[in-house]
Design a protein around this nucleic acid. Structure first.
Lengths: 223, 223
DNA sequence: CTGGATCCAACGCTGGATCCAC
DNA sequence: GTGGATCCAGCGTTGGATCCAG
């Protein structure tokens, strides 16, 4: 049931649009995968089903899902109102290997350069298996979006390199946010201390704020 | 069935000697653990059973099994002839964190400072479950042994720091040997390149040669 | 509705060593 | 007999994200 990687962008988009209208339960059945009822046990599941259905290269580290095409797949949970239900995870904040503040050298840029957005119904009153995928669309940041992302990213990178990781919290950033990213609160990793050495802190990830992805949805569906 | 850590060296030795004569199958049954038949699936199993039976602090990283006592437990497979059947794994070669060639600062020294050797019958014609543990004995390196270990270790460390990891092979070392240590041959890790940077290579471990452990057995049982 | 906390699967790494081709 | 290759369990980390208290 799993498929080969798509050969080009049009093929990927065609495949993704074929998922529109399909529910998570239907796709899971096609892929012969069980879907638990407990919502806490299904975080990330819809995204992983979509990856398999579209032929993403699974498990690749810190690289776009469709490596050859340079395209990242993101499912986007959309409320009945049309608003994104959640922020969108982008990638880990690379505390040890961060070398400079240049956005063009960052993992964030590699992931967001070109994204295939796959909307997913997110009515909280309905179980995951009954929620349908929407119509996928390809996106690259506009000039304006790029500058917003760059500004937020470089502020974060600058603080990390300065050893001020404790000031890198969820309230930072206009469109790009930093939040904890871990299996549990006890997890620890190392960040620069601003003076050759390192300090212990919690692992973090970059996220796109819902207000940012809301604008992408508008542009895609109300031209 | 698992037990608390031993409070001192005599208690540990008493516990270990109580295992003498017991077969691996008998100990596994006591600990309610299944033993597969395929020899490839039982690498390390006898050692893990012994750890549980003696109250070792499991999973501790890069430290002696009995942390409070500073004692490392090693099972030693002994052929009917009285010779060790295999080399003895000591620890990983720490390619990234190796800072100097001083043996007293090394993981090898921390592991070998004091060892509880637990002999295990290793007649290749008999299945693992039927093989019996022998009589455990405590050991610390003699002056002579210490110098042999130090010389081998420092030769290895010097080559690693010089970036000559490709010359660190199994034929190096009189008593302490370096061999691959990995789940499979594709595994890769980083080693110094001798010039600020790093190079890719296979992970390695330190091992005691059988000729070295044979002398320990002789000393312990033919005083 | 924000932002800290958490959940699962898959893979990697480490400690326990032995297997097995030459 | 050597020395390169490999095997399992357990735990950590990462990519997939959403949960949920305030």
């Amino acid at each position: 049931m799993d498929v080969a990687p798509p050969k080009d962008e049009p093929e990927l988009l065609t495949r993704a649009r074929a998922l529109a209208g399909l529910t998570v339960g239907e796709l899971a059945r096609r892929l012969r995968q069980w879907v638990p009822n407990d919502p806490r046990q299904t975080k990330g599941l819809a995204g992983q089903l979509a990856e398999r259905a579209l032929g993403a290269t699974a498990g690749s580290q810190d690289e776009p899902d469709f490596l050859e095409l340079g395209i990242e797949l993101k499912t986007l949970p959309v409320l009945p109102s049309g608003q994104p239900k959640e922020s969108t995870y982008v990638c880990t904040l690379p505390l040890q290997t961060l070398a400079d503040v240049d956005f063009e050298d960052s993992a964030v840029w590699r992931k967001l350069r070109r994204v295939l957005w796959l909307p997913l119904e997110a009515d909280p009153s309905r179980p995951l298996v009954e929620r349908a995928f929407g119509s996928a669309f390809l996106w690259s940041p506009s000039e304006t979006e790029l500058e917003l992302l760059r500004a937020d990213y470089e502020e974060v990178a600058e603080r990390v390199l300065r050893g001020a990781i404790d000031t890198v919290r969820g309230d930072l950033g206009v469109v790009l946010q930093v939040r904890p990213k871990a299996a549990h609160g006890r997890q620890r990793t190392l960040a620069p201390d601003g003076d050759e050495g390192f300090q212990w802190t919690g692992p973090r990830g970059f996220y796109l704020r819902p207000s940012f992805t809301a604008r992408l949805l508008e542009r895609a569906f109300e031209p």
